[in-house]
């Protein structure tokens, strides 16, 4: 029953997140509401990490595969995509590299400046 209870807590947080998503006017997805609800419950001590860790880690481990259906879904949008395929791919890839590079460099610069640690 351990895993069933753990899944129960996780699904419960997901359901609560869905309800907040329906009730509140913000464009926040159910999963992100659920994430913060669970974080609050963990901080408040209502939920202990060992009450959901085994199932939770299994879900995090399986997470990459959950994007497969969405990737395959591109085939259904291909009709709309093909006119703008080249600019879309170039812009998506180039701006992603920019975002990752700048985010990482800025964060690392602040961390090392504060810590006085230089490589």
């Amino acid at each position: 029953m351990k895993y069933v209870k753990e899944a129960g807590i996780i699904f419960g947080m997901s359901a609560a997140g869905e309800i907040l998503n329906q009730l509140l006017p913000f464009p926040v997805p159910a999963g992100v509401y659920g994430l913060f609800l669970l974080l609050i419950c963990l901080l408040a001590g209502v939920v202990k990490p060992d009450m959901l860790e085994a199932t939770g880690n299994w879900m995090l481990d399986a997470m990459p595969i959950m994007f497969v259906p969405a990737c395959v879904g591109i085939m259904d949008s291909f009709g709309e995509l093909k006119d703008v395929l080249v600019p879309f791919v170039v812009i998506a890839v180039a701006s992603t590299a920019m975002v990752m590079g700048i985010t990482g460099r800025v964060a690392q610069w602040i961390i090392r400046r504060k810590g006085g640690k230089r490589s």
Binding site: A7, F11, V32, G34, F36, L38, L42, M59, M66
Partner: peptide
């Protein structure tokens, strides 16, 4: 869809490493 259905609970579980 039973795979993508798990995406919301998996997102919820991101609270564990964050905590």
């Amino acid at each position: 869809q039973c795979i993508s259905y798990l995406l919301t609970p998996a997102t919820v579980c991101l609270a564990i490493p964050l905590y």
